[in-house]
C-alpha cells in the first residue's frame, strides 16, 4: 500500500499550493514594491522548477540530457534578453 501512495507528488502539490498562497499574500499585505516583486519572482521561479521537474517528469526519462540542455539554453536566452533590454532601455540610455 505504501508504495502505491504517491507521497512525493502529494507533497509537491501541497508545496505548490503554499507557493501560490505566498505569492497571493503580496496583494493582501501592504509592502514595498521591491519586497513584493522579490517575493513574486522567487516564488514564480521555484514554482516553475517544481512543475517542470516533478509534474512534467523532466529528469525521469533517458533523454534527460536533451531536456536539461534545452532548459538551460532557454534560461540563457531569457537572461540575455532581459539584461540586454534593461541595458538598452534603462541603464545605457542617455
Amino acid at each position: 500500500m505504501k508504495e502505491l501512495f504517491p507521497i512525493k507528488q502529494v507533497m509537491g502539490f501541497i508545496f505548490s499550493l503554499v507557493l501560490t498562497a505566498v505569492a497571493l499574500a503580496v496583494y493582501f499585505f501592504d509592502m514595498s514594491f521591491t519586497a513584493g516583486m522579490t517575493i513574486l519572482l522567487v516564488t514564480a521561479f521555484i514554482q516553475a522548477g517544481l512543475q517542470l521537474v516533478m509534474f512534467m517528469h523532466a529528469g525521469e526519462s533517458e533523454d534527460k540530457a536533451h531536456i536539461y540542455t534545452n532548459v538551460y539554453y532557454g534560461i540563457f536566452i531569457a537572461i540575455v534578453t532581459i539584461l540586454g533590454t534593461l541595458l538598452t532601455m534603462v541603464w545605457g540610455y542617455v
Binding site: V80, G84, L87, T88, V94
Partner: peptide, 21 residues
C-alpha cells in the same frame, strides 16, 4: 542571433557603449 537585435535601432538614443556592444 539572439545577441544582436539592437542593431535595428542604433539611432534610438541609447549610449555609445550599448551600441558598441
Amino acid at each position: 542571433s539572439f545577441l544582436v537585435w539592437v542593431h535595428h535601432f542604433f539611432t534610438m538614443g541609447q549610449g555609445a557603449f550599448v551600441n558598441s556592444i
